[in-house]
Amino acid sequence: MFASKRLAKELQKLHDKLPPGITLVKADDLQEWIMDIRVVDNNPIYVGEVYRLKFTFSQSYPIEAPEVVFVRDETHPIPWHPHIYSNGIICLDLLDRQGWSPVHNVESVCVSLQSMLTSNTKKERPEGDDNFVRNNRLRPRDINFIFHDNQV
């Protein structure tokens, strides 16, 4: 209901100022936005790479979480991380139905993902990545991730 108003305000702010390493690529409508993020320190896993994120908003945003996935193209790989599947699906509590709160926004999600990468030391995919990528037909928000570890 208030999705369009709230997104319009967020967009205005994003045009104004963004934290380092985060850029707005495309926000032609109030349904789908593209953001780029890169890690600003020299974590060797991510150095020199830029990652592309796709945000999809429902009518109930921000009461409902946006759907956020990494997308791959020639210049943008999917970052290595034990919580990021190789198809771009992210397992992060704040994007989950339970973990989301309407005080989050596009910028804070980007910042959280950025810091999730910054603090990571394992160049790994989640357990069962191959199987998940091959078989998953669910939308990210309908997947029940089990947050088995809190170290990463």
């Binding site: 209901m1 009461i63 409902e64 339970q98 709160s101 309407p102 005080v103």
Partner: peptide, 17 residues
Amino acid sequence: ATLIEHLKRSPTDPLTR
């Protein structure tokens, strides 16, 4: 009005959970 929308869906403090 908006907080109630959130609480109906998830009865938690938006900031502290």
